[in-house]
Amino acid sequence: MEPILNLNFMHPQYGTLMNAEVDLSFSAAEMIEQLELSGFLPRGGSYQLAFGEQLLQAEQQLQQLSDLYEGSILRIEQEGPAAKHFIYIQDPLGQTYAPLAFDEEQLPQQALQQLVDQGFLSDLPGDLNLYFKGEALFLDQSFGAQGLAAGAYLQLRSVSQASIEEELENLQKRLQELEAQQNQKLDLIIEQLPPPSAIPIDPNYAVRPTADPYQSIDSLLYALRMEEGLPVLEKVRIWSPIPLAIYIVLAAAAVVGLLFLILSFI
């Protein structure tokens, strides 16, 4: 377990939470003293830390709680021989918790009405419901029949809000399923592709379509004639009088031009 953990402490009277980075080597008594020094608890009281259904002894260290996790809520209860067991209901608008004396035979509907009587709720809207670990409670069944015990934390929220959260969760699961299906199809396509060596190469675009050395037409023709025992072909030169006539005409034009230039200066 980490030596430092982020924990929440619930006020014994108001149900508000205080968040703090806590050294788990602290004992319960040392933690209470730190909460008094911070001003969260009035000094001089008799307090005891509780986690779930377990009440911590004064000398018990926090690191001895094996189920403690990041963001856990530890209750601060006032010590006394007639201490009651509570369940804690979260305000739908914040992080405030209302402690209610736990009774296994109590109905969730009765607990909601008790919150109104205590002033924790201004009224009792018809779309509010209690949730435990993300599951909605049946308002007409007792807490004990639905498996709740003392120390449970309940959420109070509207049914429409819960349905939206469920829809978002279902949408996220569907997106994950689609992503997994796409990855499977992609893997199947990759498996069916031929190896790189079997992919045909277009010689019109390939610089070296094969690994064979390049041979010109002349070299290939020379090799074939050598194999057949034929003489090597001589170079063919085609003679044409046209270039000679062009050169004579250009030379005559140059001479005429030069004579015309000399006569113009005389």
Rank of each mutant, 00 (worst) to 15 (best):
T96C: 10
R75C: 10
V116A: 03
A180M: 11
L107Y: 13
E165P: 05
E167A: 05
P99N: 09
K133S: 10
L130M: 11
S142C: 02
Q141K: 12
R75K: 06
E104G: 11
I89T: 03
L93Y: 11
A145C: 04
L139T: 03
E105Q: 15
E177M: 09
A83I: 04
S160T: 09
E166I: 08
L154D: 06
D123V: 08
E104T: 12
F102K: 03
L178S: 09
N170D: 14
S142Q: 01
L112D: 04
S158E: 11
Q90P: 04
D103F: 07
G134K: 08
E169A: 06
Q90A: 06
Q184G: 03
Q172W: 02
I76F: 03
A145L: 14
L74K: 06
Q61P: 05
Q60N: 04
P125E: 09
E191T: 08
N129Y: 15
F86N: 08
L148S: 00
E166R: 03
E70L: 03
K84I: 04
E179Q: 13
G151H: 06
E135V: 07
E79D: 12
A149K: 10
L178Y: 14
I190Y: 12
F86P: 00
D140T: 07
N183A: 14
I73K: 02
L112F: 09
A145H: 11
Q161T: 00
F132S: 00
L124S: 01
L93E: 14
I87F: 01
L100G: 01
E59Y: 14
Y131C: 00
A101V: 15
S158G: 08
L74A: 03
E77Y: 12
A111V: 01
I89F: 03
Q176K: 14
Y97W: 13
F120G: 00
Y69C: 01
Y131P: 02
E177N: 05
E167S: 04
F102H: 08
L100M: 04
Q161Y: 01
P99R: 15
R174E: 10
D123G: 09
A111M: 05
P81W: 15
F102C: 04
L156K: 00
Q78V: 06
V116Y: 02
P92Y: 07
L186T: 07
F86K: 08
R157M: 15
E191F: 10
I164M: 15
I189G: 04
S122L: 13
Y97G: 01
Q118G: 05
N170F: 10
E70H: 04
R157F: 12
G71W: 08
E169V: 12
P81T: 09
A149D: 14
L175G: 01
E104D: 11
N183P: 01
L139V: 08
D117Q: 00
G134L: 06
S72A: 13
L115N: 05
L188T: 10
L62D: 12
A162G: 05
P81D: 08
E104H: 13
L171V: 09
P125L: 02
E166V: 11
D67N: 05
Q182G: 02
Q184K: 13
K173D: 07
S66W: 12
E105D: 14
S163N: 13
S158P: 00
K84T: 02
L107N: 08
G119W: 05
Q95S: 11
F132K: 00
D103E: 14
L171K: 08
Q109C: 01
P99L: 02
S160D: 15
E167T: 10
G147C: 02
I73V: 07
G126P: 06
